[in-house]
Each structure stands twice: as structure tokens, then as C-alpha cells.
Simulated scan of single mutants.
Amino acid sequence: MARYILNRIIGVIVVLFIVATVVFVIVRVTPGDPAAVMLGPDATAADIADLRIRLGLNQPIPVQYLYFMGGLLRGDLGQSIFLNEPVLTALGQRAEPTFFLTIFSILIACAIALPVGILSAYKRGSVFDQVVTTLAMLSASIPSFWLGLVFIEFFAVKLGWFPTSGYGGPGDSFLSRMHHLVQPAVTLGLVNSALIIRFVRASMLDVLGDDYVRTARSKGMGEARVVLKHALKNALIPILTVIGLTTALLISGAIVTETVFGLPGVGSLIVSAVTRRDYPVIQGALLVIAALYVLINFAIDMLYLVVDPRVSY
């Protein structure tokens, strides 16, 4: 087991190093002078030269790379040009809405997908199974921004149950801020539950016909115990994988939903950084999101050991 964990940790470090290198190269190979692109066409030559010095773009590429990697090791993602504050601080100030939106969305998606997917597999070929499969395919094809606008029109404008946008004021309570997240969380949860439903159904179908399931039934065990204890436990690895990937996708995919609902999260920060060509913020956000992808995958790998001890061998 120790060797398995060590191999995964080494893999995480290697992937993070590669991602950091790719992000560094992408920014440097952008057509034109990055400093001139950031400041726009109205910038003077002096302003461009000053920004090049501030960003270290006047140094040779190998020197820039060493400074870049050294800053990452110190936790320094650079300085935002337009916000005039460290990128890590800017991301941290806007992390709360994105964090809770991701957590609530994946909880809603799992609360829908797990029981529906298990029951659909158990009732394979029935009307319920066909309806679930059809609705899952339909949900996967619905754009989240369109569903969000429908929710705003119906639940916020017509019924007045939820705010149309925003995350509350600075003095609002925690429950008030969470109230603003109900609609976007349900939007993302419904859309992303479709993929999890299909994986849960497929994984359960793979194990429900195995010999050990038939043996458990022949011993007189109840159907609920056979399905939930024996079959589900052995189908968990692919299910955990898709839940982990969905969580990672929600972190980066919340950009559109945050924009629709006016949430001041990381997604909105990235959109504004792209609009204003604030490259340090874009670069830092890419690195953080990529790191979260890798760490979530690492956490899923560790869960494999709990679900199936044979993985360590």
C-alpha cells in the first residue's frame, strides 16, 4: 500500500510540473508582445516597457522560467495588473461562492443519480428504466445557462422564492448567502446528474449478473441487502471515478453558471480577467484549477484503497 501511495504522489508532482510548464509556455508563445496585449492599443511605449520589466519579460526565457517556478514553490502566482493585488489573494477572496456552489451541486447530483441509477439497473428493461435513460440523455443535452435562465424567470421573477442574482451583501448571514446558491446549485446538479446516472446504471448492470450476487440471493438474503451491500460495493470504483471527474468539471464549468446568476466567484473573476487581458490572473487560475483536478483524482485513487483493497496489489 505504501508503494502504491508513493507512486501516486510522484505522479501528482510530475503532472503539476508539466501543467505549470505548459501554462508558462502558452503565455510566452502568445502572438505579439504579451505586455502590449495586456495594456491594449492605447498604451505608450514607456508603459509597455515598464510592464515588461514588472513581469520579468525583459529577461531571457530560461531565466523567466526559473523565476516562475521559484514563485510557484513559494506560493506566489504573480500580481494582478488591474486588481493591483496578488493573484492568490484575488482567487481566495472569490473562492467561497465557487466552493459552496461546487459542493452543493455535486451533492444534489449524487442525491439524484445514485438512487435513480441503482433502481434503473435493478429494473432493467422496464418502463421506469426507459424513462430514466431518456431523461438522462435529455438532461445531458440541456445547456446549463439556458436552464439557469428558465429557473430565474420562473422561481425568482414569477414566484419570488429566490434572488435573481448576486451573493448577498457583506453583512448578510451565511444562510442568506446560501439562499442565493440554491438556483445555481440545482441547475448544475440536474445537468451533471445525467452522466452519473448513466455510469451508476452501467456499473450496476455489470455486477448484478455476477455469480456472487446469485449466491447471495440463493442464501435467502433480502434484495435490498444484495443490491446495496454486495452489488453496489463492487460497482463503486467506476462510480467514484465519474463523481470525482464531475466534481473537477464543476469547478471549471461553473464559469458560465456564475455569470448567469451574477455570482462573484472564481468563474466571474476569470471572465473579467479574459476581458481585460489580465494574464497573471488567467495564468494563476489555470494553475489552481489544474492542481484541483490532479488533487481530486489523487483523492479518488486513495478512496479506491478503501473500497477495494485489491487495488494496492
Rank of each mutant, 00 (worst) to 15 (best):
M1F: 14
Y4Q: 10
L6N: 04
L6E: 05
R8D: 02
I10R: 14
I10C: 11
I10D: 00
T21D: 06
V22D: 08
I26N: 10
V27I: 15
R28G: 09
A35H: 02
L39R: 07
A43K: 04
A43T: 07
I48S: 05
A49M: 05
D50R: 13
L51Q: 06
G56T: 12
N58Y: 08
Q59I: 00
P60Y: 07
P62V: 09
P62W: 10
Q64S: 10
Q64V: 11
Y65L: 13
Y65N: 04
M69T: 05
M69E: 02
G70H: 08
G71I: 07
L72V: 03
L73Y: 06
R74K: 15
R74N: 12
G75W: 10
G78E: 02
G78Y: 06
S80P: 04
S80R: 04
E85M: 14
P86N: 09
P86L: 08
V87S: 02
A90Y: 01
G92W: 06
G92K: 05
R94Y: 07
A95C: 09
P97S: 11
F99N: 01
F104M: 05
I108G: 01
A109G: 01
C110Q: 00
A111E: 02
I112E: 05
A113M: 03
L114D: 03
P115T: 09
L119W: 09
K123L: 14
R124W: 05
V127W: 14
F128Y: 13
D129H: 04
T133D: 02
T134L: 12
L138D: 01
I142G: 01
F151V: 02
F154H: 11
F155G: 05
A156Q: 03
K158M: 13
K158T: 13
W161C: 12
T164V: 14
S165G: 09
G169P: 11
R177A: 03
H179V: 01
H179M: 09
A185Y: 01
L188M: 14
L188V: 03
L190P: 03
L195D: 05
L195F: 03
I196M: 04
R198H: 11
V200P: 01
V200W: 03
D206W: 12
V207C: 12
K219G: 05
G222S: 15
V227S: 04
V227F: 05
A231N: 09
L232F: 14
K233Y: 11
K233P: 09
N234D: 12
A235G: 11
A235F: 04
I237G: 06
I237W: 00
L240E: 06
G244V: 07
L245K: 05
L245G: 08
L245W: 04
T246V: 09
L250H: 05
T259E: 13
V260E: 03
G262T: 06
G262D: 08
P264K: 07
V266E: 00
V266L: 14
V271F: 12
V274C: 10
T275M: 14
I282D: 07
Q283A: 13
Q283T: 11
G284W: 02
V288T: 09
V294K: 07
I296S: 10
I296G: 08
A299I: 15
A299M: 15
M302L: 15
Y304S: 08
V306F: 14
V306N: 02
V306L: 15
V307N: 08
V307W: 09
S312C: 12
